[in-house]
Design a protein around this nucleic acid. Structure first.
Lengths: 240, 240
DNA sequence: GACGGGCCTTCCGCGGAGCGGAAGGATGGA
DNA sequence: TCCATCCTTCCGCTCCGCGGAAGGCCCGTC
């Protein structure tokens, strides 16, 4: 209800592909005429752009505004040097994520040519209980978020995904104790991730950092020190 | 005029710092009450977030939507591997920018620890006539954009900034002829940038890539091949 | 080349949603 | 305690956004 929500629904209708006006109207559940007017205003401002074929896409102006989000590019900017270091050392996927609602949102990802293929995308979301970064974020999340996640059904990705609440609770305690999370084959059997918390000035966990490597050897422990070091580096850069 | 523009004005009021409601109302030239309602709706949706002290900042949801912009993260995603290569070889600032209106908008920037400090920021804008990427973009821009830029007064950054239209015209011709632009001390005296065009599937110039290095030696030519190679690599990745 | 089906765009009158002035908390500094 | 600043709630008037209807435009089909 309200103007804003209608407008934002229009924006939320996009998924990365170009959309026709009718697509937008359908997805946003708006009458065609209404969609037409809203889209027209958004395009006039630059929040949407038109492709040569007349379809609409998210515009650069909106990207610019989004780039001002402290938890988006702001965080990324400060973390980047450490992510690059970590990437150069490991030559594997390096990921940075933050908590939003009951999801982990991926803020940055560096992936080498030879690295494991992962399903994440910058700007994408994954549930908290199965990924390395998710476990870290969940382990340090406010109690109500933890309870909400534990109470809801836990989506299974592979047969190694931890879906039992009591088992997950134990894992979270372990993550808090050791300061590191290891998610072994819980999203894809071939991948394993090692994650550590990034803390803000007041010691709160503001993000999580991980490396995703092939799940063949038992070498996960090898990555623990370097991931932890990078995470601490970022925390320091944030003023922690 | 219209709902959308009011809402977008609220978003455009932000500049990276947290704002109080009154700040927003003042910047967007809206009555406090109106701003209050709009901001409330935006915050409820997640486009804005509140800091602990009650101030507002751009929210993660908006960043997520912005991340869907093809000319923003879409382009960045494909270009990233080449930017990293270029960065590793040069250890200097590597920048990727696109044309919007009469500005160059910086889509990505990798900066080494020891590299020259540059004033650009991801998501930021600079005029076209003085930077390396700007010259490349301007040289291949539609005629009306070129004329508009050449007709308007050209902002002077240093005493090496090219501000005379005829001189600028000559430079643009040179950029088109050689396929490379060199901006020497035109933004800051201590910095020099070498830029090359990135082309889309149809051969149109969709972005520009540059390396910013210290302006001490006459070694600009040294960087030309590697910048050009990286730009061609990205063009190929885009389907050109 | 006439026809039909998607799309997009313009027009316009009705109704309710948004507008913003006024007043009342909340907070913090002098 | 008083004042200043900022935030929030309330409410009635008006104006602006709403969306149905109708008409172009384009394309593939018969």
């Amino acid at each position: 209800m309200g103007v804003a929500s209608r407008l934002l629904d229009v924006l939320a209708a996009f998924d990365g592909t170009d959309l026709t006006l009718t697509d937008i109207a359908r997805r946003a559940r708006l009458p065609l005429t209404t969609a037409h007017r809203l889209v027209g205003e958004l395009a006039a401002w630059g929040a949407l752009e038109r492709a040569q074929d007349g379809r609409y896409r998210i515009g650069l102006r909106l990207w610019e505004v989004g780039a001002l989000a402290p938890r988006g590019l702001g965080l990324r900017e400060r973390a980047m040097p450490f992510l690059e270091d970590l990437y150069e050392v490991t030559r594997q996927n390096v990921q940075l994520a933050v908590l939003d609602g009951r999801d982990a949102v991926y803020v940055e990802r560096l992936s080498g040519r030879g690295a494991v293929n992962v399903i994440t995308r910058v700007g994408g979301r994954l549930p908290l209980h199965a990924t390395g970064v998710g476990l870290v974020l969940l382990a340090h999340a406010p109690p109500d978020v933890q309870e909400a996640v534990l109470a809801a059904p836990l989506l299974r990705f592979t047969d190694r995904t931890v879906c039992r609440p009591d088992e997950l609770r134990r894992m979270l305690a372990e993550v808090r104790r050791t300061g590191v999370a290891v998610s072994d084959g819980q999203i894809e059997l071939v991948a394993l991730s090692v994650a550590a918390p990034v803390r803000g000035p007041r010691g709160e966990v503001v993000a999580a950092l991980s490396v995703v490597v092939p799940a063949d050897g038992g070498e996960a422990q090898l990555y623990v020190p370097v991931v932890r070091a990078a995470a601490r580096g970022i925390s320091r850069a944030l003023g922690g």
